[in-house]
Design a protein around this nucleic acid. Structure first.
Lengths: 135, 135
DNA sequence: ATGGGACCTGGAGTGCGCTCCAGGTCAAGG
DNA sequence: CCTTGACCTGGAGCGCACTCCAGGTCCCAT
């Protein structure tokens, strides 16, 4: 009823290991998570929401240290929203630049692939020519 | 005249450190580079060309081990072009997928930024209202 | 009561890609 | 002759983000 989630559920949902989940908590990305009487962790809905964002930022290569700083802002209350915006906008700028770089390299790689394909088809044509020549 | 390049020139051209250059050579990304009588490295035009491609692949996160495998194919001669094509096409597939993932997350981050902007402008509107109310 | 499964802890270990360092050589300029 | 600067070597060290492990607890079903 209480909308609590077990470590196993969270791990599956976010495709993280239990170890990583604990590591994130130790690293300060998550607050000290609630516990069942057994000592097992119980994640709340807002942990899930934060994890969602963390996952997204992590997937786009935000380092753990910056993630922790962000998480601290979240914990500090709504008055930190302007700072959080700064962090996100800064991160988005980096991300935009990274995507642009990757797309550029993608073009270069395609070019190289086309070059190799050209070499191969020329070679095939050469073979055909040899055959046509009667050898 | 011989179209040789010094380590310093190469390092600057590719924005790599001398250490990294040597590390790449040890790791098998480059062949055993030529030496001047002094023992200093002298890079040839084809080293430069290979480095160009290596830089491109590295910038798109190809791991050193795969890069080494690719470099070995290059060293083995033209008959390895089909295998090189496989490596490049496989890498391009990963890269395409990675770019797609980043773009998706980019959207999510933009969304979050917009959400925070919304909170802030609502807050500002609330303040305005308070003022209008005569406080 | 016993076995299995999910989870706990603190701390050590791993893989990757560099990066740094001490101590040395060589060539050119003052 | 001496310094300076570019470069050499082998090997140690580093930062990051996990990942693994031993040994333990709790709870539930057989």
């Amino acid at each position: 009823m209480e909308d609590y989630y077990t470590p196993g559920e969270i791990a599956e949902r976010f495709d993280l290991t239990l170890d990583t989940l604990r590591y994130y908590e130790k690293a300060g990305l998550l607050r000290r998570v609630d516990r069942a009487p057994s000592g097992h962790r119980r994640y709340r809905t807002d942990d899930v929401e934060l994890l969602h964002l963390i996952r997204c930022l992590r997937d786009t290569d935000m380092p753990i240290a910056r993630l922790r700083a962000f998480a601290e802002l979240v914990r500090s209350g709504d008055h930190t929203i302007p700072e959080r915006l700064d962090v996100l906008q800064e991160h988005k700028n980096r991300l935009d630049a990274r995507i642009a770089e990757l797309v550029e390299r993608q073009g270069a790689i395609e070019h190289k692939i086309d070059y190799y394909l050209g070499v191969l088809s020329e070679r095939a044509a050469g073979t055909a020519h040899t055959l046509k020549d009667g050898s």
